[in-house]
């Protein structure tokens, strides 16, 4: 459906996209996961022909994407990172305005606008101007403006930034529903939980390069660490902690103030031995938490830093 081949985009000396290739399949939710400044938005803007690029090829439905590829643009919907609508128009007028740039027929447009309003849960607010909407409702309006013409490909660029949990859930459910209805979704985010929750496949991007790609389970299977155990200690950094590295099944150890973070080997059961070790040396602790590996763990192992660094 979407093919990006050997894409290079430079801003002067800065290489924003560095020989990146990927393939997005029809009807899947493809997550582009990476920290801020990793090149996600630049990649999307190249795919949408908003930006020219220095090398490579972008094809959608086997056709080259370009600023004048209006037949392709007709199939595409976009939800930009910043909300994009007119403050002077009401919710309904905004949706109708943008939908009208794709669909000329008034009657069919009315039904499409109604569908978008209902889909995004904005029925009670159709006559409101955007400034009277909460942040979450503005985000929903932003989505409604992008999907009203029923695109077959939808680009969502961090649609849940600064959104309350209720609206976030509403948005994520909506994205899943769109995919079920046959829409191919390209979803950029730096929230790993979202990527795990809704994406069929995830591409991890950093410094303009695609570092890894696969389903969330496949990505987790690529790494050498298992569970992450966090223990909050009563005393700060007892000397004896360094010996924890010698416990069988421990992959790595971090000690930060009063928190001990132990990463285990995949499949290794370490918690029992770890707690016995602390007990034997009379090292007191306040709490213990164990987490399964996440995409953040994958990112950390691949790049050596956290997703939100």
């Amino acid at each position: 459906m979407i093919q990006v081949h050997d894409l290079v985009k430079r801003y002067g000396k800065l290489v924003a996209i560095d020989h990146l290739s990927l393939r997005i399949r029809e009807n899947e939710i493809y997550g582009l996961l990476g920290p801020n400044g990793s090149g996600k938005t630049t990649l999307i803007n190249c795919m949408l022909a908003l930006l020219s690029f220095d090398n490579g090829e972008i094809r959608i439905d086997e056709k080259d994407m370009s600023p004048t590829a209006y037949d392709l643009k007709q199939k595409i919907g976009i939800v930009p990172q910043e909300v994009a609508f007119f403050d002077e128009l009401t919710v309904r007028e905004n949706i109708d305005y943008f939908c009208g740039l794709y669909v000329r027929d008034k009657a069919s447009r009315k039904s499409l606008v109604d569908d978008a309003i209902s889909f995004t849960g904005l029925s009670e607010f159709v006559n409101f101007r955007p400034r009277k909407l909460s942040g979450g409702l503005k985000r929903r309006l932003n989505i409604a403006c992008g999907i009203a013409h029923k695109p077959s490909i939808l680009f969502l660029d961090e649609p849940t930034v600064a959104v309350d949990p209720q609206s976030r859930n509403h948005i994520l459910q909506g994205v899943r529903a769109l995919a079920k209805n046959g829409v191919t979704v390209v979803y950029t985010t730096h929230y790993m939980e979202e990527a795990e929750q809704i994406c069929d496949r995830v591409g991890i991007i950093d410094k303009g390069q695609l570092l890894a790609e696969g389903t969330p389970a496949e990505l987790k299977g690529m790494i050498n660490t298992g569970d992450t155990i966090r223990i909050q200690l009563i005393a700060d950094k007892p000397e004896a902690l360094q010996e924890i590295r010698k416990i069988d099944g421990v992959h790595s150890l971090d000690v930060d103030a009063d928190t001990l973070t132990v990463r285990t080997m995949p499949g290794a059961y370490v918690l029992d031995r770890l707690l016995r070790y602390l007990h034997d040396r009379e090292i007191g602790y306040l709490s213990v938490a164990s987490e399964k590996p996440s995409l953040n763990t994958v990112f950390l192992e691949i790049t050596g830093r956290e997703l939100r660094d």
Binding site: I78, Q81, F85, L101, Y102
Partner: peptide, 24 residues
């Protein structure tokens, strides 16, 4: 400004429409 993607997000949306931006 409304059709300029460098200063206004609406400009980004309008540039992705299947219309020549000069016509808008």
């Amino acid at each position: 400004t409304a059709v300029d993607p460098t200063v206004y997000s609406v400009g980004i949306r309008q540039r992705t429409m299947p219309q020549h931006h000069i016509s808008i």
